[in-house]
Amino acid sequence: MRIRDWPEHERPRERLLAHGAGSLSDAELLAIFLGSGPRGRSAVEHARALLAQAGSLRPLLDRTPRQLAALPGLGPARACALAAALELGTRHLAADLARGEALTDPDRAGEYFARRLRGLPHEVFACLFLDTRHRAIAFEELFRGTLDGAEVHPREVVKRCLAHNAAAIIIGHNHPSGVSEPSAADRAVTERLRQALALIEVRLLDHFVIGDGPPCSLAARGWL
């Protein structure tokens, strides 16, 4: 049965308009992008099949646009629409961190790091530079590594802080394994950075480790 033949209160678009996007399942949200399914299958049924094949929503959407385009029933146009939607979400979150707005909620910074770093196949160490009022100045990926780790050089972090005239920073890196638990090395480099930054009077506010679940805050653990 086509979605247009469903009762109105069960159709994804009508439910979204009435109750908001949060009321829809992953398959229903994906179905809105698809618009329609292959012959004999509704968009929702097709979305469920794609999710089942990938395992869940995240491994499906972590694919590159070319990989998405190769999936049954997607193609270049729908794959590009999905990739564009994901990027819009990231930029919308980044707009909340635009200079001029003080960063008062640590969870927002953690979510931003997760959007930027989660799903990368290699480890990336990034830094969010802040001014004296904790307003965002810039976000930079400073070090890239392998599947197992990235070497972090405190001297380079200090140089970038001076270049941005930053008063404070938040750092973060991803664990491609999906495990967000900080390692002993993560704690050690955090302390090295804290000490190096103290010499130039720059505060290290937090260090987020990004895995499959919620970002892990070293400050929340009492390790900063």
Rank of each mutant, 00 (worst) to 15 (best):
E101K: 14
G172L: 05
P215H: 08
E111Q: 15
L97I: 07
Y112C: 02
R194H: 10
A94R: 09
R155T: 14
L204K: 01
R58W: 13
L117P: 02
S180D: 07
L88T: 13
R4D: 15
P121N: 08
A167N: 13
P65Y: 05
R78F: 09
P121I: 01
V209T: 04
G222F: 10
A184Y: 12
E87G: 11
H173L: 09
A138I: 12
R99W: 15
A95Q: 12
R203A: 07
H173W: 05
G211F: 00
T190M: 03
R48T: 07
R15L: 07
F113L: 06
G178V: 06
I210L: 03
L120V: 11
L199Y: 13
A150W: 09
A167V: 13
D131V: 06
V179A: 15
F33A: 05
L82P: 05
C80L: 15
L17P: 03
G211Q: 03
L50Q: 01
E10V: 09
G211C: 06
F125G: 00
C216G: 12
A83P: 02
R91N: 11
R91P: 10
S25N: 03
H164D: 03
A220Y: 11
E151L: 15
A166Y: 02
H173S: 09
C216M: 13
A150P: 05
I210A: 01
L142R: 04
L60N: 04
R135W: 11
R160H: 08
S25C: 07
L193Q: 02
I200C: 10
A185F: 12
R116I: 09
T132S: 14
L147S: 14
D62Y: 14
A49Y: 08
G100A: 01
C216E: 12
L88P: 07
L197F: 05
A219W: 01
G35R: 03
G110S: 08
D26A: 11
W223S: 11
W6S: 00
G75D: 00
R194K: 04
V152N: 06
R58D: 12
L117E: 06
I169S: 08
A196E: 09
R2M: 14
E191P: 06
R108Y: 14
G22P: 01
H134G: 13
R203Q: 06
R144S: 12
P65G: 04
L130V: 06
A185H: 10
